[in-house]
Nucleic acid binder design. Sequence first.
DNA 1: TCTGAAATATAGGCCCT
DNA 2: AGGGCCTATATTTCAGA
Lengths: 174, 174
Amino acid sequence: MSSRPTSFDELDRKIVTALMANARTSFAEIGADVGLSATAVKRRVDRLRETGVITGFTATVRPAALGWRTEAYVEVYCEGAAPPRRLAEVVRNHPEITAAMTVTGGADALLHVRARDVEHFEEVLERIRTEPFIRKTISVMVLSHLIPDSPEAGTSQPAPEDAGERASDVRRPG
Amino acid sequence: MSSRPTSFDELDRKIVTALMANARTSFAEIGADVGLSATAVKRRVDRLRETGVITGFTATVRPAALGWRTEAYVEVYCEGAAPPRRLAEVVRNHPEITAAMTVTGGADALLHVRARDVEHFEEVLERIRTEPFIRKTISVMVLSHLIPDSPEAGTSQPAPEDAGERASDVRRPG
DNA sequence: TCTGAAATATAGGCCCT
DNA sequence: AGGGCCTATATTTCAGA
């Protein structure tokens, strides 16, 4: 995980852009775009991965299609000092937490949470509040995305493992 | 881009999981895991894309490696009614905004912003506040990620066009 | 859904600058 | 160090059935 800058030139930039647009683009095709052979592109991609510029390749999924229709940000306030280490442990206990970070401001941490519906979200929230560290939470529910294709709109969701139901078999309230 | 779920079974679930873990996994390898031929896997992936479950494949990039070292969430308060349509226009004017959504609570919208450094972030913030609609903003800076590999930690950033330590113009990915 | 063959892509080896 | 060319191995893709 060296974050050491080796050289990062124009060509690397273009290659990364191409792979962000479509991670399955062939090296030959990228090469044709940037003016390199497939081999050269592959070598650069390998290097970009080794140096940690590219950390992986992933499918972007529309959470709603998998039955994840509810999304919220949760500000977390902790008892006394909240060492990030212990917060990280807590966060790992709840698969519905798709992102978590320490932040400036009154709260100690900000969580991004995905749930199937409001009922499920309430359950997650109660679970989180049960954690010994947590003093209080403030939730902000996401209503609609203004940038539909932004990664946070589509990419961040629990793995389908955690999806209790199928896209074609979503539980109804009541 | 029909958002209607056709059938979505166990096999699809596994395929999606595999592609989320590594979008460049070969269909043959996925097939070996789930007990299908490469051809069958490809057909299912094609269908998952057609039905909009999978919206694309992308490289995940460590923003810091490209010179994006500052990240914040910005709550936006608007003058009077804030039609999402107009908010969306405003948001599109600022490539550093990597996600934007309307939310419950006091604020009208929540923005996710990436900048090269605090100076750059301040500049972005001033630009945003200049927009006719915006009445006030409250910023929460991200200090550290508790889930290092969550998509929001690594995937969401402006395109590498703007990378490096250069203060050149910025464009939106895609 | 599988099989099988043809078209593509990849991962190295090797040599050049 | 980085790039191109070549080749063996995999993979994708398109026919069948």
